[in-house]
């Protein structure tokens, strides 16, 4: 559904942020995009949406080149930026002005989403808090029925109940013909929501694997002592939280934070496992 081939990108030509980055995304998945600050999470998402132009490389999003910014593709993309601006009008006025651009916009679904997010329909955008505005553009974006959903730190600014509502909404928003990619550094918010992890580090994709594949190959568990088999470990109350190769077909729960740190520090040990 989405293919990136040998993407080279940098905000200035001398210092590239991505070098020969290649990746494929397919429908029916929620991808979690992780990376350190400055690793280029937002930038990769902007590349996918055609908001920035790469130095070289080929991109195919739903059969289009996003850099051309064609309406046929734009109406199939729902992009939720981290920072955004909404005009000072009422919700219905906003929807009336914008919904018509999306041929599949579903007004009933939009009303349901607003209800779920506890946003009164007649409200003025200017009276809304950042979190409420964010919920509004998420609701609007999903109601467009866009095939490709891109979200940059969507849970930033949401309060605790809203985060739960968000997870419920995203769980129901994933359909077989939809591809969702979410960047986050608050992994706990989205822990169980993502089914494939994409980790950016050192100008490229350091890891891209489904949760199933990761837990088939690695085991996350508490150990008392560190030995040679352990790939990465962090001290905890009762010994260590460790990542070990999954020799015995154990089923364990993916610990995203642990995996994240393991990928950053133990690249050499992990690479052979995932190739």
């Amino acid at each position: 559904m989405i293919t990136i081939n040998n993407l080279n990108f940098g905000y200035n030509k001398k210092k590239l942020l991505f070098k020969d980055l290649s990746m494929q995304l397919s429908a029916g998945h929620i991808y979690g995009l992780l990376g350190k600050n400055g690793a280029g999470k937002s930038t990769l998402l902007k590349n996918l949406a055609g908001l920035v132009y790469a130095q070289s490389g080929k991109m195919d999003v739903l059969g289009f080149d996003p850099a051309k910014r064609q309406p046929a593709l734009l109406s199939q993309i729902c992009f939720i930026p981290e920072e955004f601006y909404l005009p000072a009008v009422k919700i219905d006025a906003y929807v009336k002005a914008n919904a018509a651009f999306y041929p599949n916009f579903d007004h009933t679904y939009f009303a349901n989403l607003l209800a779920e997010f506890d946003i009164p329909a007649g409200q003025k955008l200017i009276d809304m808090s950042y979190g409420q505005k964010k919920k509004l553009i998420i609701a609007f974006g999903l109601a467009t029925q866009a095939k490709f959903v891109i979200m940059d730190e969507p849970t930033n600014g949401l309060d605790i109940p809203s985060k739960a509502q968000f997870r419920k909404i995203m769980a129901s928003a994933l359909t077989e013909d939809r591809c969702i990619i979410i960047s986050t550094h608050q992994v706990r918010d989205l822990d169980n929501l993502i089914d494939t992890v994409i980790m950016l580090d050192e100008n490229s994709v350091a890891l891209k694997a489904s949760v199933e594949e990761i837990t088939n190959k690695l085991c996350f568990k508490r150990v008392k002592e560190i030995d040679d088999t352990i790939i990465y470990a962090e001290p905890s109350l009762s010994g260590y939280n460790a990542v070990v190769p999954n020799f015995h077909d154990e089923d364990s729960k993916l610990d995203l934070e642990l995996l994240f740190n393991a990928v950053l520090t133990q690249k050499n040990k992990l690479k052979p496992i995932f190739n």
């Binding site: 419920k168 769980a171 129901s172 994933l174 169980n192 929501l193 089914d195 949760v211």
Partner: peptide
């Protein structure tokens, strides 16, 4: 699958599994 995923706030693919 969808109802369960929404209720538990997890990915539908996990419920499918």
């Amino acid at each position: 699958v969808r109802e369960m995923a929404v209720e538990l706030e997890v990915n539908p693919n996990t419920v499918m599994r």
